[in-house]
Write a protein that binds this DNA or RNA. Structure first.
Lengths: 109, 109
DNA sequence: GACTCATATTAGTTTACGCTAATGCATTAG
DNA sequence: CTAATGCATTAGCGTAAACTAATATGAGTC
């Protein structure tokens, strides 16, 4: 695979459990700095910064430098490729399988 | 990371572009055998079988052996962890995007 | 200016992953 | 029975990826 499409980078970014956990932590917070992220991540600060770079390149997070801190926040639009990818199969599933609504009901009744 | 949760295996399975393409090809077809999958995949038959194994372990596909052929079909329920994960952020998106439920309404009002 | 503090970056190591080529194992065909 | 077909599995290779440790950068502090 030569080119890297948005869905590629988003999927890849979220595939790693540690990195996904970092993203989840950011999403739960309004804004959060690297030190706080590092505290819960279980890896070194350097590793966290690398994960943040990946997430940023995937469009999943944005940064706001303030003094010597850098605050990160989630970019929900960054998940659009994932939504699109899933919705692409919506029609398909509706015809042949239990539709997505029942699935959603199970998840969030 | 020691344990591997459903969301882990699903994400990881879909992260690789080649493997994701294999899944998409299966999803488009009703059923499809390995030879046909190999034809479009761009990799060898052995590689395809390995990808199929990953997808199967992730719960994304099911197999139906028939003679010396093995037909694969998509398991939409296998995507539930992904839906679950996304729905967790539904509230976050609701203001800016159509949420999953409205997406479904468009398809099947 | 010297010294922290917060984060980014780099180098180097280890592990995981995807791939090919080869082989194994059934099943069907002749 | 022998050969061919379809798929799975294995060994081995190359590369990518995640991590640590160390260092660089840059902003506040004294």
């Amino acid at each position: 695979m030569i080119q890297t499409s948005p869905i590629d980078s988003v999927m890849r970014a979220l595939a790693d459990p540690t990195r996904r956990a970092v993203f989840e932590r950011i999403a739960r917070a309004d804004e959060i700095n690297v030190a706080e992220l590092t505290r819960v991540s279980g890896v070194t600060q350097g590793a966290v910064s690398q994960h943040l770079k990946s997430l940023k390149l995937a469009g999943l997070v944005a940064e706001r430098p303030q003094g010597r801190n850098v605050f990160y926040r989630a970019r929900p639009e960054g998940l659009a490729p994932l939504f699109d990818w899933l919705s692409h199969y919506d029609l398909f599933w509706r015809d042949r399988f239990a539709d997505l609504r029942s699935l959603l009901k199970e998840i969030d009744p």
